[in-house]
Design a protein around this nucleic acid. Sequence first.
DNA 1: TTCCTTCTGCAATCTCTTTGCAGGTATTAA
DNA 2: TTAATACCTGCAAAGAGATTGCAGAAGGAA
Lengths: 135, 135
Amino acid sequence: MADQHELREKGLRLTPQRELVLQAVRDLGHATPEEVAEKVRATHPGINLSTVYRNLETLENVGLVLHTHLGHGGATYHAAEELTHLHLVCSICGDIGDAPIDTAANFVNTLSDDYGFKTDVTHFAIYGTCQKCSK
Amino acid sequence: MADQHELREKGLRLTPQRELVLQAVRDLGHATPEEVAEKVRATHPGINLSTVYRNLETLENVGLVLHTHLGHGGATYHAAEELTHLHLVCSICGDIGDAPIDTAANFVNTLSDDYGFKTDVTHFAIYGTCQKCSK
DNA sequence: TTCCTTCTGCAATCTCTTTGCAGGTATTAA
DNA sequence: TTAATACCTGCAAAGAGATTGCAGAAGGAA
Ligand SMILES: [Mn+2]
Ligand SMILES: [Mn+2]
Ligand SMILES: [Zn+2]
Ligand SMILES: [Zn+2]
């Protein structure tokens, strides 16, 4: 398992629970801690929610997982290698669309040139109204 | 008071507490419910936190106030007429910079043209690393 | 006034997340 | 192999932020 490498470098371990949490995040695309726990419990009912929280934090620390904010509330988690798109979140129907990161390239460059600000466009969703709900 | 108009139309009242909450939001620029309560309590110690929450919600419903997300946690509130800038939030030092909304105009137009998505660029902050922390 | 609705303070409750701890498991060093 | 050490888990408790039920107060209409 290649993931083990990222962890062992920092003295951390790839426990069964940790591996299940990582796999759940990868399978789900994006998911809340609760959703991750639910997914893992489908095969391993014993896992505790606090273990999920702690492992999401650990996996984020080693760079295997990232969190974003898609709604008003808490975070949702992505596999790090998969966070290659913007999230277009509709405030009306809640739908989550995707757009290539390049869509924001000019915007990001402008912020860098004019303000010296290095933008991470994926950390927060792009919020608005989807095509369907605009009509 | 012009604000009274927005409220009375919907059978709502401009109570002293409601007016204080609105004034606090205007004075503070952007503020969490807790910060609003603290500000109001400087002159009116009796106000209850739940009253602040309820009034922020009511003021948002009538369009006098809006909320945005500047950090990982909960919402912060703005006076509606003042939300005319992007928030550039630094993930390292926590600094909150401003940029004109027009900075995002091309980006917003692209999303509209290509995806039919109408973006509200102020609801979530722009997240990244400020100039100072980039060095 | 009288009647009706809205609003407030207070306490209780809820959801989400974090933390302390004791026992368990992996890794390393004798 | 054994002993020492560090990491990890489940469980329960606690914390933080936000919401809700309720009784009384206050605003507005007539
Ligand atoms: Mn929001
Ligand atoms: Mn975040
Ligand atoms: Zn929609
Ligand atoms: Zn900074």
